[in-house]
């Protein structure tokens, strides 16, 4: 009685989580959305451990994806949107890699990608939607023919079929399920029983987590079981989906985390400048990723004043009056 679930075998460091679960060439699903809840602490560690040839799948991604691409970790990408809000309407290293043909790239829409994760989570081979009919998302394929049906690349990008329940002309698009090797999620809370709570918008994080073989969750706080179980309807994932739990305060910085901190405009503006030039970008990686040996060192480098400026007002969830230009 009283004891719910022991998570001591799941609580680890980012170094250990990456070492154990992120291998060269895996299919990696990244949670969050553009400037919010990107799993940055894990992503920095993936770069430090020089993991290569990742096959990344996401809907709308921002900073985490861009740094991974810039650091040369990504070989293959299925995506709906690469952007960082006003700080980079198109992610800079993503744009460059696409223009230079440095990554294998396949475009879908946000809804299509979300449905692909949902299909994977439900254990069915595809989902149907009206999204995409007539568009070049269906007419043009990005992946080379020879990789179709290999690894975790679906045999077809999509299939258009006639609604089998209707005699009239009524096309639907079938999009293939995704079952990534690993999903990365950044949450506000994990209970001492391993229950995950995402506050604010969940995007497709729950579907992404449930469709993956391994789920790594970084969080702002590990909280008592009694707290997380007082309002179970607010929770996002039960503990049995989660394989690794890492407490990393400000673990989504420079992206935002509802109720905890806003995005960091100064950092994102600096990043835009440095990412726009190959030499500067190498300096960026050296200064902000490779020469950083712990998350505390990273936070010290960002500085208390900056972290305080983006600290969220706990009532409204964001940093009121933050200079966002």
């Amino acid at each position: 009685m009283g004891k719910t679930s022991d998570i001591s075998d799941k609580v680890m460091t980012v170094e250990e989580a990456v070492h154990r679960f992120i291998k060269d060439g895996i299919q990696l699903s990244i949670g969050g959305f553009t400037v919010t809840r990107n799993p940055m602490a894990i992503v920095y560690e993936i770069i430090r451990q020089k993991i290569k040839n990742l096959h990344v799948v996401c809907h709308s991604q921002g900073q985490a994806l861009d740094v991974l691409i810039g650091a040369g970790c990504v070989k293959r990408l299925e995506i709906a949107y690469g952007g960082n809000g006003r700080y980079a309407p198109t992610c800079i290293r993503f744009r460059r890699a696409a223009q230079n043909g440095e990554i294998e790239l396949e475009d879908y829409s946000n809804y299509q990608m979300s449905l692909r994760f949902l299909a994977g989570a439900l254990g069915i081979p595809f989902m149907a939607t009206k999204s995409g009919l007539g568009s070049d998302i269906l007419n043009i394929e990005g992946f080379p023919k020879e990789i179709r049906g290999t690894g975790k690349v679906a045999k077809e990008k999509f299939v258009v079929m006639q609604n089998p329940f209707n005699d009239g002309e009524d096309n639907v698009v079938l999009v293939p399920a995704l079952n990534p090797d690993v999903a990365l999620i950044h949450a506000q809370y994990v209970g001492e029983d391993g229950t995950v709570r995402i506050k604010g918008l969940t995007f497709a994080d729950v579907e992404q987590a449930k469709s993956a073989d391994v789920v790594i969750v970084t969080c702002e706080e590990i909280v008592p079981t009694s707290y997380i179980r007082a309002e179970p309807n607010l929770n996002s994932l039960p503990n049995f989906f989660v394989d690794a739990i890492i407490k990393v305060p400000y673990g989504a910085h420079p992206t935002a985390c509802y109720g905890f901190y806003d995005y960091d405009p100064k950092y994102l503006n600096m990043y835009r400048k440095m990412a726009s030039d190959d030499n500067l970008f190498r300096e960026y990686l050296e200064e902000w990723v490779f020469s950083i040996s712990s998350h505390n060192q990273y936070l010290n480098k960002v500085g208390a004043e900056r972290l305080f400026s983006i600290k969220a007002n706990p009532v409204v969830g964001y940093a009121v009056g933050l200079d966002r230009k």
């Binding site: 696409a98 223009q99 809804y111």
Partner: peptide, 14 residues
């Protein structure tokens, strides 16, 4: 091999 790559559909197509 685009001259300029943009963000992509996001939810626009949907």
């Amino acid at each position: 091999r685009p001259e300029v790559r943009f963000s992509g559909s996001g939810g626009a197509n949907d």
